[in-house]
Each structure stands twice: as structure tokens, then as C-alpha cells.
Simulated assay, not measured.
Amino acid sequence: MRLLQALFFPPEQPGGVSSMIPYMQERFQSSRWDMELFWLPKRIRNKGHEEVVFDTFDWTEFKDSPVVQKYIQTYKDYLWWTRLRIQKPYDLIHAHHPIAGLAAKQVFPDTPLIQTIHSSYERELILNGRIKNGGPEHRFLVSLYRELEQKSQRMLTVSRSFAGYLSDYVDHPDKIGVIPNGFDEKRFKPVPHENEVPQLITVCRLVPAKGLDILLKACAELKKKGHDYVLHIIGDGPFRTELESLAKELGIYNETIFYGYTLHPEEFMPFFDIFVLPSRAEAFGSVFAEAALSCLALVGTDVGGIPEQIEDGVNGLLVPPEDPIALCEALEKVITDPMYRYDLARTAWDKAKSQYSLTHAVNELKKIYLSYQKV
């Protein structure tokens, strides 16, 4: 069976897609399967000129928006690149971004399309202050979900929470399948270690949606209470300068290390103690599963798909979003009680191994793929 995994970003980009899809290829290396990856290179800009028409809505209603215009141009570029680079047919296309799915179906209308929605671009843009809730960009982006529903043979997402979010924008929400991201267990090797000072780590893109301003305020409270710690922030983004300034303003810059973007944080994540990310929204939160597989104690917010991974007090701690005091108190619990921290981490590791392994995700996907195999 010839499979095309259609991505938007190159596979080395951070995020749940890059944590799973490139590592799936070796699981499909057999005489029965032939899988290829495809994406739009960053250098491709303003190449496409094909007229864009959607079946379920008129996108030109939003054409005055620069954000919408950029999205449409990127879609045209993806169409241009797909027509240029893909000549041979596939038995099935599995797309992992709306642009990739819509372009693939435009070019190969007779090939079955499975579409996985990994996250909400519009929610992140709203939280990051780029667009307004209910504005033209928001309405354009959520309209794409119904278009994808019509064009794909199967829609999937990564958490029950996000499937519920999508239900407002599609005609048949009961048909949305849920397959959480899977992670290659061989990449994550817990390492026995003893840190005299608790080491906190977070890994994310530095944007307001991730709530790192709340984390820095919580860490400032920890310092006021006399707790020693080091906070390691791995990732980069437009919010970095503001976060560095906030760390200085709060008097915790010496306790905070900004690494910038790192390609494989899982290689040294096991040497830390506590993973914390107070996101304002998460469709799934792949990095929590990665931290759990590294045997770290987890602290997150009770939003989106995070509580599907963390059962409060059992395999991690959950706090409300936008609450630095509650976050400080949760961190205080795992900083001051190493045995409690270890128990949470071990339970999180057990759950992640059983529910978020790449083997589990691949087996579920194989069942779906085979249901579209030509007899």
C-alpha cells in the first residue's frame, strides 16, 4: 500500500507532528507498506497563482484580511509545489495540516484522504493577540473545518477535548476519530540522577499562548518563599525578549536559563526533575507525554487535552490557567517532597508507555489505512 504523509512544516520543526510522523516510517518498512513524507519547503514563496475555490464557503468574504491573504497564498504555493513534485499516484493520503489536506485533495481528487487536525491555529492566534475572536480571520479559519470534513474520507484529532471543540464547526462531529500522538519509546531513556537543587524544565514555542509569563510569576513566588530551583526554558519565539525582561523585573533572571531552539530536547530532558507548562490552550500537549516518558514529574494547566494526560495528584498536578499562585503551590509540593515527585513521575511514565507509545498509534493507524485498501 502506497502512503503519503502530507505535512506542512519540515519534519525537524518542533511540535506533535514532528514528534511522531518521521519516526513512523521505520514501522512501515515492509513489503506491504511504502510510505513517503511530503512538505512545503520554506523557500517556496509566492509561486502559486491557481484560483482558490472552496465548496462550503466563499473565502473572498475575508479577502481584505492580510492574515487570510497570507494563508491563501500559502495554499496556492502548496498546490504549485504538489503539482510540481508529485507525479506518481498513492493509494492513500494522510494529511496533518489543513493546507496539506486541501491541496492534496485538489491535486488527487480520487485518492482517499485522511485528515488529522493536530491543533487550533485560530485559538493560538487569538491568544497571541494576532487576531480577534469572531473577527474575519477567526471566521475564515474555523470555516476550513467543514471544508475539510467534506473533502476527507476520515477526520481525526488528538484528544477528546479537541474533538469537542471541532464539533461546533462540522456537520457530523460523531464521526471524528481520536488517536493521540504516539512517541518512539527508544528516544526516551529515564536516567537515575540526584539534583541537589530541583531542576524545572519547560519546552515550547515562546508565545503568549504557552503561559510562560504565568510560570515566571509563579517562580518569583517560589523565590520569595525561600525555595531553591533552576528554571530551564527550551524554545524560541517572538515572546522571548518580553519574557527575559519579565524575569529580570521579577528578580529571577539568575535562576532562569533561556536556551533558544533545541532540535532534540529529549536527549537531555531526563536529567531534569519537573516539567511545567501553564498553557492557555492545548489540543493535546505532546511535550507532556515526552516529559512523562523521560520520567519527570508533570505540572500543567487544566485546559484542552492536558487533563486527558494528567490525573491530578495521581500522575502529575493540574492547576487553573492564569493563576501564578496556584502554580507556585503545585511546584512547591513537588520541589519540597522528592518522594512524592518520584511517585508522580513513575506513574506518569507508566501511563505514557501504555497509552502514548508510537507502537499503539501506528497500530491504530494501520487499521484505518487498511480499511481503504483496494480489494
Results as ranks from 00 to 15, higher is better:
Gly182Gln: 12
Gln153Lys: 15
Ser161Cys: 12
Gly177Ser: 11
Leu141Gln: 03
Asp174Lys: 10
Pro192Tyr: 07
Cys219Glu: 10
Leu206Phe: 09
Arg187Lys: 12
Asp171Cys: 14
Thr241Ala: 14
Leu141Tyr: 05
Pro190Glu: 02
Val170Ser: 03
Val203Glu: 02
Phe183Trp: 05
Ile234Cys: 00
Arg187Met: 03
Lys223Arg: 11
Pro173Cys: 05
Tyr229Gly: 05
Asp213Thr: 10
Ile179Cys: 01
Asp174Trp: 09
Ser161Ile: 12
Glu242Gln: 15
Ser159Ile: 06
Ile233Arg: 06
Arg160Met: 12
Leu246Glu: 00
Glu185Lys: 11
Val142Ile: 13
His172Asp: 14
Leu231Phe: 06
Glu149Pro: 01
Pro238Gln: 13
Ile214Gly: 03
Ala220Asn: 14
Leu222Gly: 00
Phe140Tyr: 15
Ile252Thr: 01
Lys217Val: 09
Met155Ser: 09
Ser245Cys: 02
Val158Asn: 01
Asp236Glu: 15
Ala209Cys: 09
Lys223Gln: 13
Gly164Lys: 07
Gly211Tyr: 10
Lys186Asn: 00
Ala218Ile: 04
Leu212Asn: 11
Phe162Val: 12
Leu144Gly: 00
Leu246Trp: 04
Val197Phe: 13
Asp236Ile: 06
Gly251Asn: 02
Pro173Ser: 02
Lys224Arg: 15
Glu137Asn: 04
Cys219Lys: 11
Arg139Leu: 13
Leu246Gly: 01
Ser245Asp: 10
Met155Asn: 05
Leu144Ser: 00
Leu166Ile: 11
